[in-house]
């Protein structure tokens, strides 16, 4: 495979598309939590698979343990979406949603899965919406999602991805994060796509740039 990198134009386009998708996700999150949500500048990287775990740690921070929810997606694009919360993310969520009493473990997990599902669905849905008219089969780009599941609890961020478990050589890593004003809450959404989806994305991004 040729050297996998995005050109500057492709990266700009991906950043713009992601920014719009995350704006929609952030707005849903704000509504859900009744709090103003600050959006990050999307970070986009193409990495060899072995570098992904470290890149995620660098984005999330190495000094905290994280809890993460994963959802895989397949269809027009294939990949994994991870929603990564800081240690107190789960307890904060219950509080934010207005639960007075402390949630038990299963309620907490359910909440975590629900919120993650909203973020993943809105972000990936938002991306697909913008690119579907640029695919080879104009107007179609369906995605299916697996059910969200908790992939790890209170682990260092670089322990989230085990390269041995994926048969990819490269990954396109797209990271956005949502913080809440006045609260100690952060959730990172990392979307990872393997080489065949990267190639598809690259042609789409080229068409996106040309369309302007």
């Amino acid at each position: 495979m040729s050297a996998m990198q995005l050109t500057e134009d492709q990266r700009d386009a991906m950043q713009e598309i992601t920014n719009i998708a995350m704006g929609q996700a952030g707005s849903l999150l704000a509504e859900l939590l009744g709090n103003f949500v600050n959006l990050s500048v999307p970070r986009i990287k193409v990495l060899a698979l072995a570098e992904v775990a470290r890149a995620i740690r660098d984005m999330v921070g190495s000094d905290i343990d994280v809890t993460a929810v994963r959802q895989s997606f397949q269809g027009y694009l294939t990949g994994e979406a991870l929603v990564i919360y800081g240690q107190n993310g789960c307890t904060e969520l219950g509080d934010l949603m207005g639960y007075d009493e402390e949630l038990d473990r299963s309620e907490e997990t359910e909440l975590l899965l629900d919120v993650s599902n909203v973020l993943v669905g809105a972000c990936l849905g938002g991306i697909v919406d913008q690119i579907k008219n640029l695919t080879e089969a104009h107007g179609t780009a369906e995605l299916g999602f697996s059910a969200p599941s908790v992939m790890a609890e209170s682990v260092p961020a670089d322990a989230l991805i085990n390269p041995d478990k994926l048969s990819w050589t490269h990954a396109l890593l797209v990271e956005v994060n949502f913080t809440l004003e006045g609260r100690n809450f952060i959730s990172h959404l990392c979307m990872l796509m393997p080489e065949h989806s990267i190639e598809k994305m690259c042609s789409i991004l080229d068409r996106f740039v040309e369309s302007y």
Partner: peptide, 25 residues
């Protein structure tokens, strides 16, 4: 011109003197 479509974002920028808010795309 922003993708941040929270109503509060719009309100805030108007308070800070922005003349208009246009959402992306």
């Amino acid at each position: 011109v922003s993708a941040d479509i929270q109503p509060l974002a719009q309100e805030r920028v108007k308070k800070l003197g922005a003349m208009a808010f246009i959402k992306k795309p």
